[in-house]
């Protein structure tokens, strides 16, 4: 397989600095609305802050890949005497929970690092975070070339997984005829 250069984008989360304002959720939901910033709803955000204040847990998590099935097993973490719930650190949009799904359609959400034209210097959540909890880094790596799946296909795949291909085709046909 051919090698290509790929930009690897990472956000380091310094959770100890987070004071739970959830500004990242707000700006993310606004940036991804169409047109941009026309609507705000943190439930649509691709970053979600897990917060359990009395346990001193404030933990921003980014939406990762969509998963059609839940994991075979679940993990719990105990760090610095803090108990993290099952799947707390997991970034997947999966059937086991509501996190990282559009609140109305249930379609999966995935962090795209605020891809935009022209390219942004940094994702909006990083820019917006006033406490430097989120630190953005880009590096280049050589990787095997592979087909990328765009957001529409991921969304459609999740609908197919949920309702079956036949139902989706029927609905699509019916909606096309209405137009």
């Amino acid at each position: 397989m051919a090698k290509i250069k790929k930009k690897i984008k990472t956000i380091t989360v310094d959770a100890d600095k987070c004071n739970g304002c959830r500004g990242c959720e707000i700006v993310c939901s606004g940036f991804h609305s169409i047109p941009k910033y026309s609507t705000i709803n943190p439930a649509r955000s691709r970053i979600q802050v897990v917060f359990r204040p009395l346990e001193d847990i404030w933990l921003p998590i980014f939406a990762g890949e969509y998963s059609p099935a839940e994991c075979m097993g679940r993990e719990k973490y105990l760090i610095d005497e803090k108990n993290y719930d099952e799947c707390e650190f997991c970034r997947a949009s999966c059937p086991a929970r509501d996190r990282f799904k559009e609140p109305d359609s249930g379609l999966p959400l995935r962090c795209d690092m605020c891809e935009d034209e022209p390219e942004l210097e940094q994702p909006k959540c990083v820019e917006w975070c006033i406490n430097d909890v989120l630190v953005y880094e880009v590096r280049e790596e050589e990787v095997d070339e592979e087909e990328s799946i765009d957001d529409v296909e991921i969304g459609l795949q999740s609908l197919v997984d949920k309702h079956g291909l036949k139902k989706i085709v029927e609905t699509f046909t019916r909606m096309s005829q209405k137009d």
Binding site: S33, Y37, S38, T39, I40, N41, R44, W128
Partner: peptide, 26 residues
């Protein structure tokens, strides 16, 4: 607990410009 109601901004992009100015001031 609220997840289903989007809050609409009349002129969202302009609104964010004001907030970015405010960030600079802060």
């Amino acid at each position: 607990r609220g997840t289903k109601n989007d809050i609409h901004l009349a002129h969202g992009a302009e609104f964010m410009e004001h907030m970015m100015d405010m960030t600079k001031y802060i």
